[in-house]
Design a protein around this nucleic acid. Structure first.
Length: 567
RNA sequence: UGGGGCGUGGCCAAGUGGUUAAGGCGCUGGUUUUUGGUAUCGGUAUUCGGAGGUUCGAAUCCUCCCGCCCCAGCCA
């Protein structure tokens, strides 16, 4: 992360207190653990999104606060869904968010041999068995939510037979689905996870890390807790839907010769309004071409946010102030995230001038060919950011929205006969609006007051109600500006059917007419820049000095537009 | 007629028997301002899902009721 990104925004948010931190504190105080070790365990089957950021901030956050450590562990037990490209993308995103796992990078697959041995251990102790039931039969034997299940006919196979079968499973003698090994727990348990859960299945599939070494793979339930134990994880933090799995997690820890006894705690996952946050839905958007990729700036993925220009610090601050609770069905409003994005950007973004919808202005009393280089501050929130020069000339462009023909009293911008300040320039009065045949205003004739040069006020003491931005016609460069609106046009996409039916068709607008202050050609990708009065932008990876491309990260708060909307 | 959770303002969320029921977002007024931005000041729950009960005192303890979420993958 950059120096600027390490700013003080986070320290401004008080150290949070939540039930997880309380548990950790009390475990430490009581000496139940020697130190804190957490882990962030993504499955490499998609990109990380803002929901993962919450978990990342919790796991790495508490580790840092309590002087412990946090491991990055890939939960790669299902080769049919997992890919190396996701492993790389996840590592990049975790680093970008600002977390460092040091030497503690692990893969569940590193433990396949040990997990196999533990499955054998269970088989030897009569606590597991090889079953021949197929998936459909197993479902039928499992019972329902209200009715207990029945024992499989193979539940009481001999230890010898089980061991032989399991060895042959490993050796590849059986096809996918032909055999499965199950923990022998209780088919009548109210908790369905305890009705003899599958712990090993046959998957003739190449694994991203172990290749073809295995054709049987442990399930999540059989891998997660044991992997936690191997790594010495003390507090295994996960989301609420795993609450029902905790008895199973504990069962394996209790019934296997693991060296440590980690504990699982659950917190509520993040839901955000106006977007979807499940890998399945996000992958569908990518696969169906509804977005340009996982890093499309409209995506709630970390890579999407990064490309969009959201500072990592804003995401961290956002996560931090949310808190960690067990309230299951909470949906955080997108406006909450927006606030932290603007807050971070306001402090760090360089200010530049750019006109998105240009309207020509000719300053008739300005000498032809004269260029005055005016002082402009780079960031009013940060004196250290310095100043730059911007060229003021006879022919300028302003924003179309900054001119109105029949302007109401409350309109503080330009209109025929009205005077405004051109930021860092002069007071300018509009004398005439030139129209084309269709009656559309195509140019403004104006005059300026030489006694109002930026930094000075007119001797007669008159004031101006508005200040607008502008660019010099001869100096400006052209560029594409991509404007984003929410990907979905309702806060709860999919609430009444297919979430794709709620896609906002106008979520991306590409503006090719924008005129930019010349220095913008040299913007570096991702660098935060405010286009004065318009919003925060950053150069897209597609950007080049000859063909500038900017993304609008987020607009400025706009109370004028809001008042307009209300009528 | 199963098991596991959760219910505090529009949203998130403190609160752990005695507080005028924190705080943030949003919304809404004012002030400042060469960004209608920022900053700043004020307003925004007589009440904690509901009903009873215990207590001098309850969002906090007890009882019953109501509502919402998760679980029947050889996904994680």
């Amino acid at each position: 992360m950059s120096e600027a990104d390490k700013g003080s925004t986070e320290s401004a948010v008080e150290a949070p207190r939540d039930f997880i931190r309380e548990i950790i504190q009390s475990d430490l105080d009581a000496g139940r653990v020697d130190g804190l070790v957490t882990r962030f365990p993504p499955e490499p089957n998609g990109y990380l999104h803002i929901g993962h950021a919450k978990s990342l901030c919790l796991n790495f956050g508490v580790a840092e606060e309590f002087g412990g450590r946090c491991h990055l562990r890939f939960d790669d037990t299902n080769p049919v869904k997992e890919e190396t490209l996701y492993i790389d993308a996840i590592k990049k995103d975790v680093s970008w968010l600002g977390f460092d796992w040091g030497d503690h990078l692990y893969f569940a697959s590193d433990n396949f041999e040990q997990l196999y041995a533990w499955a054998v251990d269970l088989l030897e102790n009569g606590k597991a068995y090889v079953d021949d039931l197929n998936a459909e039969e197993m479902r039928e034997y499992r019972g329902t939510l209200t009715k207990p299940g029945r024992n499989s006919p193979h539940r009481d196979r001999s230890v010898e037979e089980n061991l032989d079968l399991f060895a042959r499973m490993r050796a590849g003698e059986f096809a996918n689905g032909e055999k499965v090994v199950r923990a022998k727990i209780d088919m009548a348990a109210g908790n369905i996870n305890l009705r003899d859960p599958a712990i090993y299945r046959i998957l003739h599939e190449t694994h991203p890390r172990t290749g073809d070494a295995w054709c049987i793979y442990p399930t999540y339930d059989f891998a997660h807790g044991q992997t936690d134990a191997i790594e010495g994880i003390t507090h295994s933090l996960c989301t609420l839907e795993f609450e029902d799995h905790r008895p199973l997690y504990d069962w394996f820890v209790a019934n296997l010769p693991v060296k440590t006894a980690p504990h699982q705690y659950e917190f509520s996952r993040l839901s955000l309004s106006h977007t979807v946050l499940s890998k399945r839905n996000l992958k569908q958007l990518v696969d169906d071409g509804k977005v340009s990729g996982w890093d499309d700036p409209r995506m709630p993925t970390l890579s999407g946010f990064r490309r969009r220009g959201y500072p990592a610090s804003a995401i961290r601050t956002f996560a931090r102030q949310l808190g960690f609770t067990k309230s299951g069905d909470s949906v955080v409003e997108m406006a909450n995230l927006d606030f932290f994005v603007r807050e971070a950007l306001n402090k760090t973004a360089l200010r530049r001038m750019a006109v998105l919808n240009p309207l020509k202005v000719t300053i008739e009393n300005w000498p032809e060919g004269q260029v005055d280089w005016m002082d402009a501050v780079n960031n009013p929130e940060d004196e250290g950011a310095g100043k730059r020069k911007v060229p003021f000339t006879r022919e300028l462009y302003i924003e179309r929205d900054d001119f109105m023909e029949d302007a109401p009293k409350k309109f503080f911008r330009l209109s025929v006969g009205r005077e405004v300040r051109f930021k860092y320039g002069f007071f300018v009065t509009c004398t005439e609006a030139i129209k084309d045949d269709k009656g559309e205003v195509i140019e403004l004739k104006c005059t300026y007051d030489p006694e109002t040069r930026s930094g000075t006020n007119p001797p007669d003491g008159r004031k101006v109600k508005g200040t607008i931005h502008w660019v010099s016609a001869v100096h400006a460069i052209k560029g594409d500006v991509r404007l984003y609106d929410p990907l979905f046009n309702r806060p709860d996409p999919g609430a009444d059917g297919d979430f794709q039916d709620d896609i906002n068709p106008d979520s991306l607008t590409i503006n090719t007419a924008a005129l930019l202050e010349p220095s913008l050609a040299d913007a570096s990708v991702g660098e935060a820049i405010q286009f004065e009065r318009l919003g925060y932008f950053c150069a897209d990876p597609d950007h080049s000095p000859n063909a500038p491309v900017f993304n609008r990260t987020i607009g400025l708060r706009d109370s004028w537009a809001k008042a307009q909307k209300k009528g």
